[in-house]
């Protein structure tokens, strides 16, 4: 069997594919984070919590309410967006003019509160959300057997990422949004309701995170801390890609997922640090990130 640095090629392909699955999550989450930072100037530490909440809402829809996976795919992002809009209107709106650190503190506090509530309600032993029947089973790719659900994750996450990118970069609405962040006063003068746009963007960002949570729900035991174990990595991804850069988030998310996958094969001990090593290197060479402007 051919090998690359002592690892059989089929095993390596398998690991790269899994890296791509994780990369899809990073892309989806960092995209929302980047969007919120780019348009609202808020470092949203609660993003991981929204991801966690997405997974728990899916569970909640299934358990007492009997609504299955496909309902969750549709309803959870809407519910989360509603929550996000509520948070933006009541809390975040008051701190736009203040330093970034206040946004960080407020959203960190939200993280602690929401996580605490979920912990009280559901405990820490972990809950199980089954893979939907329509997506269970495996496909044999020759070099590995891939669970169909993981293939769906790649398709769904990347599809939504590209949709978001297209809306922001290729439509009139996106153009107004981008103009609104450059110069809100001028855009308001043209009669555009900028605060409403900002609210909607925050809602959309939160919906993306919650959607990622629904996608992740069948892949792991649901515990209240799934959010903060991923959010730190995602912050690394956003910093590497360049804060506020949409395409940067998507490309960097996938690339770092692959890199992490490789690390898990060759030196697993470093798999949780490799992204931060890259982050340091990138910051040394390009302080605004790979795709950042300025």
């Amino acid at each position: 069997m051919p090998e690359i640095f002592g690892v059989p090629v089929p095993v390596l392909y398998g690991q790269l594919l899994l890296g791509l699955v994780n990369g899809s999550f990073y892309a989806l989450l960092s995209l929302g984070l980047s969007l919120i930072f780019g348009l609202l100037n808020i470092v949203n530490f609660a993003h991981g919590t929204m991801y966690m909440l997405g997974a728990f809402l899916a569970y909640f829809l299934l358990q007492p309410l009997g609504l299955g996976y496909w309902w969750a795919v549709v309803l959870v992002p809407i519910m989360a967006a509603g929550l996000g809009i509520g948070i933006e209107r009541t809390i975040l709106r008051r701190i736009y003019k203040l330093d970034h650190i206040y946004g960080l503190l407020v959203t960190f506090a939200l993280t602690m509160i929401i996580e605490g509530l979920v912990r009280v309600w559901f405990g820490v032993s972990g809950l199980r959300y089954a893979v939907p029947d329509s997506l269970s089973g495996m496909v044999d790719l020759g070099f590995m057997k891939l669970p169909i659900y993981r293939a769906w994750v790649i398709v769904a996450a990347l599809g939504l990422c590209l949709l978001t990118w297209a809306v922001i970069e290729r439509t009139r609405l996106g153009a107004i949004l981008r103009a609104g962040t450059e110069n809100p006063a001028l855009v308001k003068a043209f009669g555009v309701n900028v605060p409403l746009l900002v609210t909607l963007v925050f809602g959309w960002g939160v919906a993306l995170a919650a959607f990622a949570g629904v996608l992740a729900a069948p892949l792991m035991q649901l515990t209240p801390q799934i959010g903060h174990s991923i959010i730190i990595t995602v912050f690394g991804v956003v910093v590497i890609g360049g804060m506020g850069s949409i395409l940067g988030s998507i490309v960097t998310g996938l690339g770092l997922g692959l890199l992490e996958g490789l690390t898990k094969v060759y030196y697993p001990e470093a798999s949780s640090t490799v992204i931060f090593v890259v982050m340091i290197l990138v910051l040394l060479v390009r302080p605004h990130g790979l795709f950042g402007k300025q």
Binding site: V11, G14, Q15, L18, G19, V21, N22, M144, R150, A216, L219, M220, Q225, I226, S229, I230, G261, K264, V265, P268, S271, S272
Partner: peptide
Amino acid sequence: FMASDFSSYALQ
């Protein structure tokens, strides 16, 4: 406690 994805390790 930081890894939530164990698929790589499972496959190995």
